[in-house]
């Protein structure tokens, strides 16, 4: 007799805090007994609309954070939830950022756009264990000033680690770096034996890897969190398939050297 819990079982949790990050992006702090780890994601359901995979952006005691950009049908509906509402989800799913790989070395975190939601928690954890690393460098590229996430945290992050931001486009309100994140990588000092955690759109990842390789960082030291179409999140619907990998269960975090041959090919 096979007894298995239904993998599609959804549980409800209460939204205790909603933060407007940008015009279309919200963070939700949810009261839950789930035990996710940095790098993992949940499938969030909205009644009658469907599910979307959403990274766990942070955890604080029994509160977990999700940051959602209202970009389509499911995410817009999730974005419309208010404090005290129930959120329905299943998870956590997927693998985690291998932080211990970077112990004793420089940890470099590279995030593009909403990718910061996927790297923020591991960055927070790294800050807590700062002594374990030779140094922590975090580079964050944002399309423009208005889409900057987690502005209320920058000051704290700056005080702990080397946290740098670059905007694709200049803005009168912005005094910092301007240019693509690859430019920022170029002009930043990165150890040859650094360990890199990266999340962002596929093209950003591709070009950042090229810059990192120029600095002598091995592709086996670069970890990437990938995004693919997901329906089941448990390796059976086939949508997230990427070469021999299921991004939903073998990832979303991959060692770049292991996916390189597929990542750098079109239409895999």
């Amino acid at each position: 007799m096979i007894t298995t819990e239904n993998p599609y079982r959804l549980r409800n949790f209460r939204v205790v805090k909603k933060i407007r990050e940008t015009a279309d992006t919200y963070s939700f702090w949810i009261e839950s007994d789930l035990k996710p780890l940095p790098g993992q994601y949940n499938m969030i359901y909205y009644f009658g609309i469907g599910e979307a995979p959403i990274t766990v952006a942070g955890k604080n005691g029994n509160l977990i954070q999700h940051t959602v950009r209202a970009s389509g049908d499911v995410t817009s509906h999730i974005g419309s939830l208010s404090e005290e509402d129930f959120i329905y989800l299943r998870g956590p799913y997927g693998n985690i950022w291998p932080a211990e790989e970077a112990y004793g070395k420089q940890l470099v975190i590279i995030s593009g756009g909403l990718g910061l939601a996927a790297t923020k928690w591991i960055m927070e954890e790294a800050i807590k264990n700062k002594k374990q690393f030779k140094g922590i460098l975090s580079l964050y590229g944002s399309k423009n000033y208005d889409s900057l996430l987690y502005r209320y945290e920058y000051e704290r992050w700056h005080s702990h680690i080397d946290f740098r931001i670059t905007l694709d486009k200049p803005d009168p309100r912005w005094k910092g770096d301007v240019g693509l994140i690859t430019e920022l990588i170029k002009k930043t000092e990165i150890d040859r034996d650094a360990v890199v955690f990266m999340c962002g759109p596929d093209p950003m990842v591709k070009f950042s890897v090229i810059e990192l390789e120029k600095k002598g960082v091995g592709t086996d030291k670069i970890y990437v969190s990938m995004e693919r179409h997901m329906k089941c999140s448990v390796g059976t619907c086939g949508h997230c398939m990427f070469g021999p990998f299921f991004v939903c269960k073998d990832g979303p975090v991959f060692r770049y050297s292991e996916i390189k041959e597929f990542f750098e090919r079109k239409e895999v």
Binding site: M1, I2, T4, E5, N6, P7, V234, G235, T236, K249
Partner: peptide
């Protein structure tokens, strides 16, 4: 293998039907 044996979240629907 796909739905049950080599899956860490076995598909309960498949498993039931299969049984």
């Amino acid at each position: 293998d796909v739905f049950i044996n080599k899956n860490s979240h076995p598909d309960s629907y498949y498993a039931k039907a299969r049984e």
